[in-house]
Design a protein around this nucleic acid. Structure first.
Lengths: 227, 227
DNA sequence: CGGGAAATTGATCACACTCAAGACCAGTGG
DNA sequence: CCACTGGTCTTGAGTGTGATCAATTTCCCG
């Protein structure tokens, strides 16, 4: 099962067994938290089932979603590796979720003994860093509609389900707003506009992308926004 | 000289010598580029003198500054390590600058042979990632004045010079605007406001922080913005 | 001095946020 | 089976922040 985790591609079967032995499963129900921002980073997690979002909360209570995690992906690892030894964000379950937790000390020991694994982790980190840099630029320079399009396209690639009509996503307007850095009102208006134009179907906590290509053009800015 | 580079703390003297032998110096004058976004990442650099900004340019020509690099700091390394093998941003000299360039292949070989170095790089990357996540959240949730205050405080810590009156920074309004993700007009207005309030002195491509504490409060949001 | 870039300041405007009211929908219990 | 309830979503109206545009002014350096 853990072989499907891209972070463990270079782990030996024996090391995987060690991880299984040292780690322990942790189930969190919808809206529950695996850990909170600034808590001491005691464990790194591998998500086995469900969906988790990494968020930061401002003093004023506003939520910003940094990314969403799907099955077989690592989370909390930055905190586990970083010298500050605290989590930089909170991890909240979007659905009932199950993860495998590995103590940070075990995780670090594993990395020390296996440079290939450490290299993999570095690649994952730099990939994520690239993405954050891109999203930062997008946040600064692009308008809301384009940003929302980017979010939808990205989520479709990561967590979309193919159905006959197109690609289905299950996110509330609020979820999308927190990811795109806007309000649920704006998201609602934009999605309504797309539906009128025939690009998507919308529903409660659900949307179906009918024309992925058109959405991708919107995201890239090559298609003008609605009139 | 290269011992002062935090990325090489765990390099053996012999490895440092190897780097000196394998690398080559590269001087770039003000406004020149060390490399461009999306170019193949042929070298990683250590800045020896001057100042360099990492930027992304949008299709429309807008510039976003991701970070500024001071002496003895590494840049271009993410591109050199990442599997995509391209630079995620362009590196432009803010002043006449000198850097030591190391071929990516040599850099990767060094990391493979010395896991401690790789670990250091991982720490640097995760630190930077933390910072990007924070700045992303700030960009989404905070108002301009607060963001500009954050930029000024951060730059003061990294590149400020102590002078009798306070801390001196040499950045144009345009520079600050690109870092804070706003326009030079807004930066100008905000700085004028601070000067009227006696928090700073301003000049051409220059500002002096008289009351670091008050600015820090502005950055933290605990001091209300100007009326 | 004079040229040119940097900075200031005013006027205008648009995007998206805020607040408010109500419609819609899904699940629950009588 | 239907009414109720709570949460999600929609839509409208009003507003404010900060971008944009334009016109000077200031400053530095040659």
């Amino acid at each position: 099962m853990l072989q499907r985790v891209e972070a463990l591609r270079h782990a030996s079967p024996e090391e995987v067994r060690t991880l299984v032995r040292l780690g322990l499963p942790r189930a969190v129900e919808e809206d529950g938290f695996f850990f909170f921002q600034d808590d001491p980073a005691e464990r790194a997690y591998i998500l086995l089932a469900g969906r988790v979002k990494m968020i930061q909360v401002t003093p004023a209570g506003q939520q910003v979603t940094l990314r969403t995690i799907g099955p077989y992906r690592l989370f909390g690892a930055i905190g586990a590796v970083n010298p500050t030894a605290t989590y930089p964000a909170s991890a909240q379950a979007l659905q009932d979720s199950l993860a495998w937790g590995i103590a940070s000390s075990d995780f670090r020991r594993l990395l020390q003994n296996n440079p290939a694994l450490l290299l993999d982790l570095t690649h994952m980190t730099t990939d994520y860093l690239r993405e954050m840099q891109e999203r930062y630029r997008e946040m600064v320079t692009e308008q809301v509609e384009q940003r929302i399009a980017r979010v939808v396209v990205r989520l479709a690639g990561q967590l979309g389900r193919r159905i006959p009509e197109g690609i289905e996503l299950t996110f509330s307007r609020q979820d999308l707003a927190e990811i795109a850095g806007t309000t649920l009102y704006t998201v609602s208006r934009v999605l309504s506009g797309w539906e009128k134009r025939g690009l998507i179907l919308t529903g409660r906590e659900r949307l179906v992308i009918l024309h992925p290509h058109a959405l991708a053009q919107l995201a890239a800015g090559s298609l003008p926004p609605a009139p």
